[in-house]
Write a protein that binds this DNA or RNA. Structure first.
Length: 213
DNA sequence: CAGCGGATATTCT
DNA sequence: GAATATCCGCTGA
C-alpha cells in the first residue's frame, strides 16, 4: 500500500467515534496552526478525554451553556474555553454529534515555526516547554476564543487542522488519571501521553485553592 | 526543587 | 460566594 501523503488532514469520520478511541489515536499526529505570520506545527504528545453526559469532570456534564455549546455540535470542530481568568485551552469535539465529548490537547512538541512560538511564550526556558501544558500549547499556537467553533476538517488553508501523519505506536502510549480534575471525575484514567517524552506536562493532582479575601 | 499566592472568566450554589 | 480541564514569579531549602 502506498504511504499516506503527510499533509492530508484527518477526515471528519476520524473524530466521529467514541472519544476514548480518538484520544490515544491523536498522539503522534501533527496539528498545523496557520497564521498571517506563518505556520506552526505541533506533534501531539499528551491529551485528555472528556465524555459529556457520563463524565463529572466534563464542562458538558450539567448540560448546554453558552460556553460549551460547541461541544454539542459536529465532531471535528475546535472547542476553546477561557479559564482561571487568564488562559485558553483547546479541544477537538468527538462523536457522535450531540454527545458533547471532546479531547483536550495538553502538550506537544513544536516541529515547525518554533521561532514564532517563542515570541508568544517568552517565559519558556527551553523549546521543550513551549507547549508543555494545555494553556501553554494554546498560547504557543496563538489560539484564543476567536477560534472557538472552527472546523478542523475543512479543506484549504484553514486556521487549524490535524494531519493524518502517523500515530504513536500503542505500546508507547501510557494512560492515567486526568490532571487537575476533582471529585468523581478523577477516577477515570483518561489522560493519554507518549511514554518517556520530554514535552509531556508533569502530573498535578487537583488541589482546591483558597480565594483571596 | 517544593510550596504558595496572584491573576480573575465562567458557572453553579 | 466558591470552585475550576492553569501558569508564573517569588520564597526558602
Amino acid at each position: 500500500m502506498i504511504a499516506t501523503p503527510d499533509r492530508t488532514p484527518l477526515p471528519r469520520k476520524f473524530f466521529d467515534r467514541p472519544v476514548l478511541e480518538v484520544a490515544p489515536d491523536l498522539l503522534g499526529r501533527t496539528l498545523v496552526r496557520s497564521t498571517p505570520d506563518g505556520p506552526i506545527a505541533l506533534r501531539l504528545t499528551e491529551v485528555e478525554a472528556y465524555d459529556g453526559p457520563n463524565d463529572p469532570g466534563s464542562h458538558a456534564y450539567r448540560g448546554r451553556t453558552a460556553r460549551n455549546e460547541v461541544m454539542f455540535g459536529a465532531p471535528g470542530h475546535v472547542y476553546v474555553y477561557f479559564t482561571y481568568g487568564m488562559w485558553f485551552c483547546m479541544n477537538l469535539v468527538c462523536g457522535p454529534e450531540g454527545r458533547a465529548s471532546a479531547v483536550l490537547l495538553r502538550a506537544g512538541e513544536i516541529t515547525e515555526g518554533a521561532e514564532l512560538a517563542r515570541t508568544r511564550r517568552l517565559s519558556a526556558r527551553s523549546d521543550k516547554e513551549l507547549a508543555k501544558g494545555p494553556a501553554r500549547l494554546a498560547t504557543a499556537l496563538g489560539v484564543d476564543r476567536s477560534l472557538n467553533g472552527t472546523d478542523a476538517c475543512a479543506a484549504g488553508d484553514t486556521p487549524l487542522r490535524i494531519l493524518t501523519g502517523t500515530p504513536a505506536p500503542s505500546d508507547q502510549v501510557s494512560n492515567g488519571p486526568r490532571t487537575g480534575v476533582s471529585g468523581d471525575g478523577a477516577v477515570h484514567p483518561w489522560r493519554y501521553w507518549v511514554a518517556n517524552d520530554a514535552t509531556v506536562s508533569p502530573y498535578r493532582a487537583h488541589v482546591p485553592r483558597r480565594r483571596r479575601s
